[in-house]
Design a protein around this nucleic acid. Structure first.
Lengths: 205, 205, 205, 205
DNA sequence: TATGAATGAGCATTCATTCAT
DNA sequence: CATGAATGAATGCTCATTCAT
């Protein structure tokens, strides 16, 4: 009997409540991990009732998906390769790495650990993550690499594998950091410069 | 009054039973993941009673630790850097990468996913893994890198970060593969050669 | 933003549900004993789900504590020594013993057995019982005994030990009854008179 | 095929092993209580294998029965009323109470707690205890009380209830001690004299 | 829409007892 | 008779989810 008018104010309220819940979920997941966290934990952290969460998310996994979307959005908000076509490749690389490695600073350290862990093990999350984050990134990056290759800024390398190697290196370093490596924790800020040189010049004599 | 001699036959029986259980655990964890797997699942897969598992492992997490040890052992059995000091660095790098990337072929694909996921999120496992696997590897590798640096086979790079970047790259590529990247699955065998060139020569012109 | 006012109706509902569960627990504990009784037994007897019990009691032991509290409350409701100061001591003694020994009649026979048994063996229950029931009783009784001693109604006996001897006698007789003594079961109602004479006059010539 | 000759040496060995097990059981039960103690605990304490216990005792409850028998035996070894007929009643009472209250000193404090607790709740133990310990004691004691009554050492009281009141008082005081009463713990040794006077002379003026 | 009490399936773990060696 | 590995039934407790109010 209720009209299905799309009330924009309603929409905003819903979005606000969703965010409130997601922020609470991020906080608690980061502290306790995905499995040990209960819906009650999240509800308490959000200052609402357990049941209310189910008005905005289908189930516990949907919260993870929501968090993933949030991360994705913030990535896309930040990421803008277009301005880099003009500047030189070394500067681009440094800036890109700086940006990618910065996510681990501040508070998102722990939630990253939890999200990646769950992605690895949950097929639904994994596919979502791949299609909404990994794949588009590769597709877009490929265009730039082709451009740079054409302009002989890069060697005529295999772009597809190169991209995967570089992004893999970033991911792997983040993981090593997450795993507790002290060296990386101490020297994290040196990485953008160091990696850029290594990627562009190699380590062999 | 019978002496508590350590019966070698007993020892073998115990080791055999432990392996029987661990193999069952690997099989079921790989299929269903760590959390969704029940002790009953593992017992059934091993053809024994639930309780028997607890004669050999303190709890469910101890099974993960056992699997980690197994992987570690098989790594150490395979790994022998000593023969490499003589041959040239490019060959070494290819061989090393071949070896490291090979683990994902065969059946250990899925269990890898599960083990890494759990390591990320379980402090006990994480620390164990770091101290028994990561750290020793870095310590040993560092010696070789220093040697190569002295002989000017390498540029005078920062060894500590270089090692972490390379191993991170391997780890990251494995993860990207695990995450479902089709390109990596198809072209996995090209990686040793490709990565070696990239690491030694860089991609910049 | 809604105030967390303590809704009196909520409070009553909670109290009602607690009592419902406790009554079921008393019933089943009395029939089967504490250890042999399962949470499922109690839930079934209360006509609710297993999990619901844990919304009102932290664990199985907390049910015992709840029962103890219930007994304590009913004791305190009944017990009123104040009216006795005026009347003669012999009458007081008879009335007191009548009251104390009455608890074993009606249905509380079996639950008493179970509760005392568990108190003896569970430190938490034991200390709770001592501080909430035994100790206050002794403190209050001591005042009356001192009064009677001052008025030379009593011999100048050691009040502290006297109280313990009398209450011990009551407890011991209850236990002997519980243990299955037929004589006590048959002649239970004679005890108040009999014990009063014995305590006041002694049995020696 | 084995001969059923009653080998007296065999018999002694069996008795020795039984006692070894019972002593271990007493030790561990006293420490941890009946239910929390496992057969493995007892086996370890006795320095034998789990299964061996089942060659001497049918099940865990049979161990309790064995302990009860042991206590009973030691009681009967100590108890000899015959020498008391000659001496005066007051001395008899003191000696009897001294003996009965002494059991709580030394180590049998904790095991007493556990045994009584289990007797209260286990029908088999309860009936055994009543018929093998309580009843015979009452029967024997009744004879002496009748003698003393005939000789006008006692008032013409109801012997049956008197006995139960006195033994109940002893039991009750033991329980109050067990429950943690500090006064009784401190002044335990005063009880025989105090109780004797109270029982013989009463507390009323 | 918000609530939070009720639900009940689900699971790790324990442990008395058995029995082949 | 001694052993102790194997058994598997049994259970307290958790928690995602539902739904009446």
């Amino acid at each position: 009997m209720t009209e299905k008018t799309i009330d924009p104010i309603q929409k905003q309220l819903i979005a606000a409540r969703r965010n409130q819940i997601l922020e609470a979920a991020i906080k608690v997941f980061a502290e306790k991990g995905f499995h040990p966290t209960t819906i009650k934990d999240i509800a308490r952290a959000a200052g609402i009732a357990d049941g209310t969460i189910y008005n905005y998310f289908e189930n516990k996994t949907a919260l993870m998906i929501g968090i993933l979307d949030l991360m994705n959005e913030s990535d896309q908000r930040d990421e803008d390769f277009s301005k880099f076509t003009e500047i030189d490749f070394r500067t681009f690389m440094k800036t890109y790495l700086q940006h990618r490695l910065k996510v681990l600073k501040a508070d998102n350290f722990e939630i990253f650990r939890v999200v990646i862990s769950e992605i690895m093990v949950n097929k639904e999350l994994r596919e979502l993550h791949y299609h909404k984050i990994i794949e588009p990134t590769f597709v877009m990056a490929e265009k730039y690499f082709q451009l740079w290759a054409q302009e002989h800024i890069l060697k005529p390398v295999d772009i597809s594998l190169t991209m995967r190697a570089i992004s893999g290196m970033v991911l792997g370093l983040i993981l090593e950091h997450i795993m507790g490596d002290q060296t990386l924790e101490t020297r994290w800020d040196e990485l953008p410069d160091f990696l850029t040189d290594m990627i562009l010049d190699g380590i062999g004599n």
